[in-house]
Design a binder for these strands. Sequence first.
RNA 1: GCCGGAAUGGCGGAACUGGUAGACGCGCCGGACUCAAAAUCCGGUGGUAGCGAUAUCGUGAGAGUUCGAGUCUCUCUUCCGGCACCA
Length: 882
Amino acid sequence: MQQQYEPLAIERDAQAHWDKTRAFNVVEDRSRPKYYCLCMFPYPSGKLHMGHVRNYTIGDVMTRYHRMRGFNVLQPMGWDAFGLPAENAAMANKVAPAKWTYDNIAYMKKQLQSLGFAIDWERELATCTPQYYKWNQWLFLRMLERGIVYKKTGVVNWDPVDQTVLANEQVIDGRGWRTGAVVEKREIPMYYMRITQYADELLGALEQLPNWPERVKTMQANWIGKSYGVNFGFPYEIDGKKDVLRVFTTRADTIMGVTFNAIAAEHPLATRLARDNPKLAAFIDECKRGSVMEADLAAMEKKGMPTGFFVTHPLTNEKVEIWVGNYVLMSYGEGAVMGVPAHDERDFAFAKKYGLPIKQVVAVPGKAFSLDGWDEWYADKENGRCVNSGKYDGLTSYMQATDAIAADLKAKGLGDKQVQWRLRDWGISRQRYWGTPIPIIHCDGCGDVPVPDKDLPVVLPEDLVPDGSGNPLNKTPSYLACACPKCGKPARRETDTMDTFVDSSWYQIRFACADQANAMVDDRAKYWLPVDQYIGGIEHAILHLLYARFWTKVMRDCGLVGIDEPFTSLLTQGMVLNHIFQRKGEKGGVTYFPPDELEIERDAEGRITGARARDGKPVEYTGIGTMSKSRLNGVDPQALIEQYGADTARFFIINTSPPEFTLEWSDSGVAGASRFLKRLWAFAFDVAALVQAEARKRGDQAGYVYPADWAKQSPALAAARRELHLNLKQAQYDMQRMQFNTVASAAIKMLNALSDLSKSAEAAGNPHYAQLLHEGFSILLRTLSPITPHATHALWQELGFSGELIDAPWPEVDERALEQDEIELVLQVNGKLRGHLVVPKSADKAAIEGLALAHDSVTRFTNGQPPKKVVVVPGRLVNVVV
RNA sequence: GCCGGAAUGGCGGAACUGGUAGACGCGCCGGACUCAAAAUCCGGUGGUAGCGAUAUCGUGAGAGUUCGAGUCUCUCUUCCGGCACCA
């Protein structure tokens, strides 16, 4: 072994060893508790970025730590391999998406392996393989049978030049990203998954996820958006036909105050009324156009136009005019709202603007209603009573009146209480090539026919190269042509593919049995599921995590898995940030500069003020932000590993910030991490030499019997050993609560304590000094091993510890090492620190009080007067109150 | 607007159940080694006053509870994230 720290060689050897011994390949073992640690799998975009490295390092620390604690740990890895970027790359490079994707996977896998993650690579999967997506198709068909999948028309972005459907991210300022053509909205048939059927459970079960971050649960709850109210209708007659205008309201108690109704521009009634009203038609057009401009939406002025058409109030039979309002959303509720200006702030503003009547129907005692301006209490649900409301007068408005009014509406057959959700069903059809084929065949005679199970998978041809003008599957007769499974006549295959969120909704389940060719899941899933710890970016807080939860519940209801929730614990890691440097051009353009190519300038206190580029000219410092390609402030993990090694990269990432915080990149911080590992390495070799020399002197190799009472041997040794075990105790606690940065700190402190001891005079001649270093390194290397597995693996052998480090148990704290014969207490007078007091361990409260009161630091402040009170906190402090 | 989170030295951050604020790392300052630089090692490093022991102020602001508050309660400010003409 090299005395020089050469991370690349050390890491290569350790990785080769783990690989050869299949160290991280796991099988079900009921004799041990299992621990399934999963990081969100990467999209194979080409190469790893620092966010990946951080994500997988955090996961690896957890994996290795739990392994040491005796768990049977599964950490798998796979590839979220379908998706749009492959098609874009294909167009740019004229390579098939399949080849591009598989090449990227091969490269990124090498990168992951060079970081030394404890991954079971035998379970590796890629979602773009038929072995995987067959089961997307299979479950799709089961969902179709159960009515969870259904077909309806949906709106898509249509590029009229390329004759293709665009994803939302391909629409820039309302225009196609390639053609610049104004994007049109088109209605096409699509498949939907009835996630709304599970809305209640998806919302309610959030409470049973105590180990999910609060904000993720809140985001999901908002997204699902449950509200209680009443759905009812205003009868009307048009073209000789009777109908009702349905609205949803959370304030049914204010129905008696309705003075108008507003409907969305896209509402069918609006379309009908515009037929004989050109002014209205123009207004509706304006509304539809306006809504495209997302940015203005929030600040948009509330506008409306009367239609001259009246509906009947269901309880008073009064006539109520319909308005078209630009603020009414077609996509929420019924696309129509009742207008109660007296008790809704927005309606109030609308009524004032257009001179509509305002009718108070709720009163709060002691508050006066005025038409002059809005007051918060007008919308008070808690304290109001109904007024001007006929038979409802006097009822407490929200509770009693809502019930009474809903009952009356129900009796008339015009409405009832209803729960309204913001959540929509999940449209999964994508008019794209690089995705899971939807297993449907279109037959002129039989309609849409599901592909029979025996014909699965419907295999996606891998040699097509998209050119941007629509889905290439539509131009591939060999794919399109098929026989109808029902009647046998020639038919046409569906060419839409599934949303890639489908792929990632259940990969965590497939990892349990990735090699199972005959079923979607098998019994092994029962052992491994659910995932004990899931780790990934906050950007997936809503969609991915919600879809995965939904999918798990569907699989449960199909009898495929026995769990309700896929992820027991969730950790959302923070983003990786770096400094941003730029120079503004004469024409206002901005040029960015990579931080590592600049001479950084700092002020007297070390703050960055600016920089100088290689051309000698100044560059402006604009602060920190996420690493991004466009801002050139990304750090390439590959270069980092090549320069410093994986252990340094891992140690820096773990040590610099807690996992959930953002991580600010710092080149000097990386250098610091490297310095620590070099110091560890060099000191370990000194210790190894000393230990071997001692063993030779003793003439036995049998190892050590540590002395029972270190304190008697030497105060310095006892103090160092105490420091060691104190830090171990801290590291243990911090591992449990996933605050890994302080685990790294504890390891540094352990090394500092041992190396300080090596410089003390007391250590030199002490017969137990080598023993303490030996014990110290056995603890230090194990504490550090989840973070920097390679260097610790090599040093474990160098120091002659038995077995392999990855099989060594997590070290145990020796509580006796923490005990002290004398304890230093903090002396406070009136809560302020005034000095320190050393007392024997055995001293009781009275004795401590006596010593404290006699202490100089106290008598200085007491002026001989007796104290009002003395607070003694055992083992901590004495506070004298005067 | 609503919901969630946060605010601690020059910087990242530590302080678990209220009990020595600033651990550890980075940066900075000084020193050693060197012809010199890099690397490495040693020492210092919240502000103010003082040669010093020490005093005093100090965890976004203000109040409160307490012998004692970064930590608990209330009010406010700022920042970050999410959602939102949601009926």
